[in-house]
Design a protein around this nucleic acid. Structure first.
Lengths: 196, 196
DNA sequence: AAAAATCTATACTGTTTGGTATATATAGGT
DNA sequence: ACCTATATATACCAAACAGTATAGATTTTT
């Protein structure tokens, strides 16, 4: 069984991750964190070196949830097209999926950290690369199987796909209108059926 | 000629607009503003009621630059397809265009203000509606001319177009890689040529 | 050019910021 | 059950926060 401190550390991360995601690095104060966790500064600083380390752990927590969910869709049994279909279905519900974490961590932290925190900004860039790689791998396998053909390289197509998805997420987030998400994904489904 | 105070007000807005756009509402402090403008708090608070009013003016300043530039492209003489071509050309250089204002104000303020400032968040939503309306109008005119046909309503197509553009902006901004912008716009040009 | 209006600088407010030293309380191992 | 190690709370720090009162400087109007 895990030690008390490990459980406290995990509890803190889980609790503050949505706060950092919603209000940004600077926008989240230590008093916000003590209030949300019910712990004191002593407890938090006993488990994390400083605010930055905590914010980074919080992002990584959200990122792992996202990557795990994506892996589940992309590694499910079935053809490459099946996996892509899993992916689009997943993103149709992405707003509900990211509700607990306070919205899309890639969009929120990516934009917030750009000029406010280099470590976080780099972590987001790395996460994007990972996701694009995962999608590209599925496409490459489908290509090698002869199951589908591509107008561009697998990575290039994956990047285009993810860009459109991220655009839908951005628009839905900013306008609070999930139609952007639904309509874009519907378009992507048609695009996949037609092009591949 | 304008009065001294009016010029000072304008000077303050021009100077602080990129700061608010880059670092967000909470991330920009009054001392950042006095430092950048070379003015004191007295001068700034003499021209603006508070930080929020200044941030709103700063966003509106950037927004007006953007809307004016878009109007120039969409109201230029020529056919509807010409105007759409102007639009895609404009967005190919969007990263350079938004450099002075510290990045895309719709993306930056839209994400930042979401949970930090309702007034700003509402202003961004309104701006998106305006831009979509402008694009939709061009499409509608082209439709009425018999110049082009659309798979969906003009507004719906405008929204899809803008979502993809905004996705490219988001990805380019977060990764600092303008290829996302270029590749997406290239794709849009093909899409317009094929679908319309 | 004088008077009235307006703009800006200075100095200050109370509050909140991230972070720390230390004392106490609690957990884990024997 | 005790002892040691560790985790948490309390009280504090200097700096930075947004905002303000007022006095002096500069425009603008007359």
């Amino acid at each position: 069984m895990s030690t008390k401190a490990e459980r406290t550390t995990a509890y803190i991360i889980e609790t503050v991750a949505p706060l950092f995601n919603k209000h940004g690095y600077i926008g989240t104060s230590m008093s916000d964190l003590t209030e949300a966790t019910g712990l004191t500064k002593g407890a938090i600083y006993g488990n994390f070196e400083n605010k930055e380390a905590l914010a980074l752990s919080a992002f990584e927590y959200n990122r792992n949830i996202l990557l795990t969910a994506l892996d589940e869709e992309l590694n499910a049994p079935g053809s490459a097209l099946d996996k892509l279909s899993n992916l689009t279905e997943f993103y149709k519900k992405y707003d509900a999926f990211t509700l607990k974490m306070g919205g899309c961590p890639i969009l929120n932290v990516g934009v917030d950290a750009q000029h406010n925190n280099k470590l976080l900004a780099a972590a987001v860039k790395e996460t994007i690369k990972e996701i694009e790689g995962k999608i590209a791998l599925v496409l490459e396998n489908g290509l090698n199987n002869g199951e589908l053909k591509l107008p561009v390289t697998p990575l290039q197509f994956a990047k285009q796909l993810f860009t459109m998805i991220q655009g839908a997420i951005a628009m839905s987030t900013i306008t609070l209108d999930r139609k952007y998400l639904l309509n874009t994904i519907t378009y992507l489904e048609i695009l996949i059926k037609r092009e591949l």
